[in-house]
């Protein structure tokens, strides 16, 4: 079993990368949907709902993702659900992402200046029209850099799923490192793959930012 780290092994890492990407995408979509709900619950003028949401956000943001992964991985079976590492990771990371997306989007919504609401109102736009055509388009633009920034965190954090045994890039590297006895090369290669994905994402965000017209 012991051999050199070769091109074929790098291929194996790349193959495992699709699970990293898939997990990140799942967390993005699941967390994105839940995050919208979180953002809305946070701004609706219903006090108890706001407090509940703030509690949820603080709980998720105040505890380590690894702990959340473990709680889901070991906890869900207690409710009679037989979950594999993939399901636990996808669930935990979606919940994790929802707290961050929710806060990012609420902040973006609230950072559109009040006078933009007034400008819309003074043209006779209804509340919904102001929201749909004036406020949300601006909030979306404002939210792009922090949203992409968090997606980068999400991609990196998928590595923690390795610790509950989900075979993505990091877990694959551990297996590969054990097989080849070339841990340095293997982990550097893995780092390289993560870097390409994350740096690429940040770069896209910067390009977008420059091309969108956002209030200053």
């Amino acid at each position: 079993m012991i051999r050199e780290f070769a091109l074929a092994d790098f291929g194996y890492l790349l193959l495992a990368t699709r699970w990293t990407i898939l997990l990140a995408l799942t967390a993005m979509l699941g967390g994105g949907f839940l995050g919208l709900v979180v953002a809305i619950c946070r701004v609706l003028p219903i006090r108890p709902l706001n407090w509940l949401t703030v509690g949820y956000i603080n709980l998720i943001q105040g505890t380590p993702l690894l702990g959340q992964l473990f709680v889901f991985f070991f906890g869900l079976p207690l409710f009679g659900l037989s979950v594999d590492a993939w399901t636990a990771a996808a669930l935990a990371m979606s919940i994790y992402a929802s707290a961050f997306f929710g806060e990012i989007w609420r902040g973006s919504l609230q950072s559109v200046p009040l006078r933009q609401w007034e400008a819309g109102a003074s043209l006779g736009l209804t509340y919904r029209q102001r929201l749909a055509y004036v406020i949300i388009p601006q909030a979306v633009r404002i939210s792009i850099p922090p949203t992409v920034g968090f997606i980068v965190q999400l991609v990196k954090n998928t590595s923690l799923a390795a610790l509950i045994g989900f075979i993505e890039l990091t877990r694959a590297s551990q297996i590969m490192a054990a097989a080849t006895f070339a841990p340095l090369q293997v982990y550097l290669a893995a780092a390289g793959i993560y870097f390409v994905i994350c740096f690429g994402l940040s770069h896209v965000s910067q390009l977008l930012e420059r091309r969108l017209h956002v209030a200053r």
Binding site: R115, E118, A119, L123, Q138, H213
Partner: peptide, 20 residues
């Protein structure tokens, strides 16, 4: 109020154009 505002034009000190 929306009907009213459609008939009353208002311009502010801070030019409130929609930046997007």
């Amino acid at each position: 109020h929306n009907k009213l505002r459609a008939r009353v034009g208002m311009v502010f000190q801070s030019y409130n154009l929609f930046p997007h």
